[in-house]
């Protein structure tokens, strides 16, 4: 039961983008270890701007 709730919570965080920074850090560690990662604030700014560049919503 608890593991199911945890799983559900993970899906909610993933869908809403709540965990975007954590995923970015994971990606960073895996692929670009040499550079310093962006701060949470800077990352979030870029993430939000990119997310809204283009057609993202329909009728």
């Amino acid at each position: 039961m608890l593991s199911k709730l945890k799983r559900f919570w993970r899906v909610v965080r993933r869908l809403s983008g709540d965990d975007a920074y954590e995923r970015y850090l994971q990606h960073h560690v895996a692929h670009h270890q040499a550079d310093t990662p962006l701060s949470k604030e800077a990352f979030f700014k870029r993430w939000q701007d990119e997310k809204w560049n283009g057609i993202k919503r329909c009728c």
Partner: peptide, 25 residues
Amino acid sequence: DNGRDFVPTNKWIVFGHHFAAIAGP
């Protein structure tokens, strides 16, 4: 995969994003 817009994602999550994007008024 660049960790930002190109990200391999769980299919249910993609489904959620896709449905939220196509379903409007």
